[in-house]
């Protein structure tokens, strides 16, 4: 009798805390942020800076839990399946959220299984070419790709990644034709452009900058709509392909069903973080631009990207 009474009381307590207390008092215990990539990488770096800031603001430990594997799919899926209690989040990335569900079978629906909180950082790609390629700007590259269809090879981090899909989108918008050569990861693809094994690549900013500085590759453009502060000399690729954009982002997401007040509170804290000078400087070291969005803006962005990449996939399939 006594034990069942305790159980009833405990159940009532959980209900109450779930409904009312948790949201005002949140957080009351340490928070976990899952990183779907290995420690030491780009997303890991972004997460550790964010975690440090959040610890200071929220007054509780923020644990970074690396669950790498399958290009981020594994950790993202773990987040989708986690309890929506406001204590498990993910530093997700565009690759596993917007592209992977289009390109392959994954165990989550990017539009239904998550409560997006805020994008934290963005970084554009850089269009690089081996110095032997006889073009010096994007217009010439497009012209060359039209005049010599299927002659130039482009390297990517693997099929169905942003480095693959952004070039496919660019081709369909400009009519240039290149041949896809997949590698295992972005760094080997960039190395192949340096060595001349492939001629060009839409590559990660952090891989591209040192090679452009050393003049081992030609930098032609960035894939954001505006110029990047890290490579101010390069024009946006949108100059030759109006509307073209391929940006990879890292953003905090929660499992769907996480109480809205918690999501809003965290989004508010992250919006404050976007104004913090120290955090900005930390992100800049890695070539990341610090940003913030509202949960609704974030949601809309994911929906828009899924639509774009679904269209690209249809075109790739149609070519086969």
């Amino acid at each position: 009798m006594k034990s069942s009474l305790t159980a009833v009381l405990a159940a009532a307590g959980i209900l109450l805390s779930g409904a009312a207390f948790a949201q005002d008092a949140w957080p009351t215990k340490p928070i976990t942020i899952i990183v779907p990539y290995a420690p030491g990488g780009y997303t890991d770096g972004v997460t550790r800076i964010t975690a440090k800031y959040l610890e200071g603001k929220l007054g509780h430990a923020v644990v970074v839990d690396n669950r790498g594997g399958a290009g981020g799919i594994l950790g993202t899926e773990i987040t989708a399946d986690a309890a929506p209690d406001g204590y498990t989040f993910c530093m997700c990335s565009s690759g596993a959220v917007s592209i992977a569900p289009v390109a392959q079978k994954v165990g989550y629906d990017p539009l239904k299984d998550f409560a997006p909180v805020s994008i934290v950082s963005t970084t554009p790609q850089v269009v690089i070419a081996n110095p032997s390629v006889p073009v010096s700007n994007m217009a010439e590259l497009v012209q060359y790709g039209k005049d010599h269809p299927g002659e130039l090879n482009y390297g990517s981090s693997g099929i169905g990644g942003l480095m693959n899909y952004s070039v496919e989108l660019f081709q369909s918008m400009t009519g240039a034709k290149f041949v896809h050569v997949p590698f295992k990861g972005g760094a080997p693809a960039t190395a192949a452009v340096v060595a001349g094994e492939v001629q060009l690549s839409f590559t990660n900013m952090s891989d591209a900058i040192p090679q452009i500085e050393a003049k081992t590759v030609k930098g032609l453009a960035v894939t954001s709509k505006e110029r990047s502060e890290y490579l101010p000399d390069l024009p946006p690729a949108a100059d030759v392909a109006p509307g073209f954009e391929a940006i990879s982002w890292n953003g905090v997401m929660a499992p769907a069903g996480t109480p809205q007040p918690i999501v809003d509170k965290l989004a508010g804290t992250l919006a404050e973080m976007a104004k913090d000078a120290d955090v900005k400087a930390g992100m800049a070291k890695m070539g990341a631009t610090l940003v913030a969005t509202t949960p609704d803006e974030f949601k809309a962005r994911i929906a828009g990207e899924v639509e774009t990449w679904t269209g690209v996939l249809k075109e790739i399939e149609a070519k086969k």
Binding site: A38, P39, G40, G41, Y42, D44, G45, A187, P188, T190, A191, V194, S206, I209, P210, Q211, E213, A214, T216, K285, M286
Partner: peptide
């Protein structure tokens, strides 16, 4: 010499250098 990591361990070294504000590369 090239700033290209050749293994998971080397990729971590690159990460360490970047976090310390040094971009590994040919220079």
């Amino acid at each position: 010499t090239l700033g290209i990591p050749t293994s998971a361990t080397m990729a971590l070294m690159v990460g360490a250098l970047i976090l310390h504000g040094i971009t590994p590369g040919p220079t």
